[in-house]
């Protein structure tokens, strides 16, 4: 289970890639080059990265409206993701889905989702399929603190618990659902407590520590593959940007944001790798450069790609 040097560097690089990707999306959105709604994952990268490092080919993830990080961590093509966000034909969904619907089912990525909480039963279903097909696959559902108040959360956990489905429910508790702080939207602070009601293990971890996320997921995935059923993992984290790009964030204080920025998962893991002498300052700079180049290429790819032909409006409604 212990990671080797290359694997640790890869975790770091992935987080940097997600960060750079999203900062770039943020920039183009503010310039009016990206339509629709964009929800950024900046600050929460350790969750997707630590979780997905445990997954293999036959596994599935179900994501949320804040899904770029999940896709990248699962190994999706950043070129196709960027093109999709720009609404271009070479995007994952031919430009028909946009930021909130990026998906790559073949990669085991069941899609970002515009409906909060929709992923939970979908992930249970994918886990059911894996179990039914006896392929040892697991599925993971990412969902927010706000989503844990949807009926789908309760129904999916219950179903998964009675059917012992190989699913890991990964709660990204960033303490807000749009403007609603957790203390205003639920009478508990640790969503892991809700596991008790479904008779499954619930653990609460530091979601800004990629190794903590990695370890907890490794155990939950092991448990799921062994046939012991679902787990709820609560990752405490924070989004640095507003709920969506353009959100005036009147509901939280500057001070709170700054406190959390100090716990930024990327410099934190970077500092540890430096301390351990697994990585050097030069390597950090090299990763930053490499990631920047990759994202520039993704943007160039997206910008080069044409908009979809109007005929595309009518295709893909049904299978042929």
């Amino acid at each position: 289970m212990a990671l080797d040097k290359e694997e640790m560097l890869e975790l770091y690089r992935k987080m940097c890639l997600i960060r750079e990707f999203e900062e770039t999306v943020s920039k183009f959105f503010s310039q009016g080059q990206i339509p629709g709604f964009v929800h950024l994952y900046i600050g929460e990268e350790a969750v997707a990265t630590g979780v997905c490092a445990n997954l293999v080919k036959q596994d599935f993830i179900a994501s949320t409206h804040r899904g770029h990080g999940h896709g990248i961590a699962r190994g999706a093509s950043i070129n196709k993701m960027m093109a999709e966000i720009f609404g271009k034909v070479d995007g994952y969904c031919k430009g028909k889905g946009g930021s909130m619907h990026i998906a790559d089912v073949e990669l085991g990525f069941l899609g970002a989702n515009g409906i909060v909480g929709a992923g939970l039963p979908l992930a249970a279903g994918a886990a059911f399929a894996n179990k039914y097909l006896n392929n040892n696959g697991v599925s993971v559902c990412f969902f927010g603190d706000g989503a844990s108040n949807r009926a789908t959360f309760h129904e999916a956990l219950n179903l998964a618990s009675i059917w012992k489905l190989p699913v890991v429910f990964v709660n990204e508790n960033n303490m807000y659902g749009i403007s609603m702080s957790q203390e205003r939207h639920q009478n508990i602070t640790d969503i892991a407590d809700r596991a008790v009601a479904y008779g499954i293990p619930g653990v609460s971890i530091d979601g800004n520590d990629v190794m903590a996320v990695y370890e907890a997921t490794a155990e939950a995935v092991k448990r799921a593959r062994a046939g012991a059923g679902p787990t709820l993992i609560e990752c405490k984290t924070y989004r640095h940007h507003g709920h969506f790009e353009g959100d005036p964030t009147v509901y939280r204080s500057e001070d709170e944001v700054n406190q959390w920025k100090k716990k930024d998962p990327i410099p934190r893991f970077g500092a540890r790798l430096l301390e351990m002498k697994i990585m050097t300052q030069d390597e950090i700079a090299a990763i930053a450069d490499e990631v920047k180049r990759e994202i520039e290429e993704a943007v160039a790819f997206a910008q080069r790609s044409p908009v979809p032909a109007v005929e595309e409006l009518l295709t893909d409604v049904y299978c042929d």
Binding site: G87, G98, P308, V310, L313, L314
Partner: peptide, 16 residues
Amino acid sequence: APSTPIPFASNLESAF
């Protein structure tokens, strides 16, 4: 509108 879900790309959305 045609009987399709609503597409994201601006040109398709306008066509819808």
